[in-house]
Design a protein around this nucleic acid. Structure first.
Length: 211
DNA sequence: TGAATGATTTACT
DNA sequence: GTAAATCATTCAA
């Protein structure tokens, strides 16, 4: 198994590109979170891109700048964490240039390090005891890593939370984003990217996603 | 000051 | 396959 010391944060230049480019490039990268001496890591296998003020599905649509999405307007390479549905957190990577509120939503990872810790943080029930179910969803991923609103605005180019280089997936598929049917034509844009070889995806290939 | 809603997950019929 | 849980944020008044 890989050791934590071999992980190193990606440079800010990785994030300083359009969200759809960063999203596709983020597949196969390693999400690392070092908390209280324990390292958690997972390989990114599913992401979605949100393209700023033109994107009806994005929080920053129409140029709305609020206390919640303030981080999206800042420089790239920072974490945008928000709370939704009264019970879930979502983790995003702020991308592109400062002033352009674009982001990449992390939807699923494959556990690499600290699976036991993730299991505890998730409070596994008998039905979610399988490793596969630990991090295959945006809300689950945050719970498994112990990420909450306290981590909103963290610099992803330094510890404790960052992305590290990883292998490139052999097969990348793009399809429609999840849960944004209200966004009109934007809901049909292929801004969701998955490693189609992974079994850790949040939504299985089917009619709803067009995969 | 109050009401509506959402980048979801889970359990149950 | 359908519905409930649950609350910060946002918008209207």
């Amino acid at each position: 198994m890989a050791i934590a010391a071999s992980f190193a944060p990606l440079p800010r230049s990785f994030y300083a590109r359009p969200a759809d480019v960063v999203a596709k490039d983020a597949l196969g990268k390693i999400l690392v979170f070092e908390r209280e001496g324990v390292s958690l890591a997972g390989r990114i296998v599913e992401v979605e891109a949100y393209l700023g003020i033109r994107d009806r599905a994005a929080h920053s649509f129409g140029g709305r700048r609020t206390a919640r999405n303030e981080v999206m307007w800042g420089p790239p390479g920072f974490a945008y964490v928000f709370f939704i549905y009264g019970m879930h957190f979502h983790l995003n990577l702020v991308t592109d240039a400062e002033g352009l509120p674009c982001a990449v939503l992390l939807r699923a990872v494959e556990p690499i390090l600290g699976e036991e810790v993730m299991r505890v943080l998730r409070g596994t029930t008998s039905k979610s005891a399988k490793a596969m179910l630990l991090t295959n969803g945006p809300g689950k991923l945050c719970q498994a890593f112990g990420i909450s609103r306290a981590h909103n605005g963290l610099d992803l180019c330094t510890k404790p939370l960052y992305l590290s280089a990883g292998d490139v997936p052999r097969h990348i598929k793009s399809c429609a984003r999840i849960g944004v049917e209200y966004a009109g034509s934007w809901a049909k844009r292929l801004l969701r990217f998955v490693d189609s070889d992974s079994r850790y995806l949040s939504v299985r290939p089917g009619r709803r996603t067009g995969c």
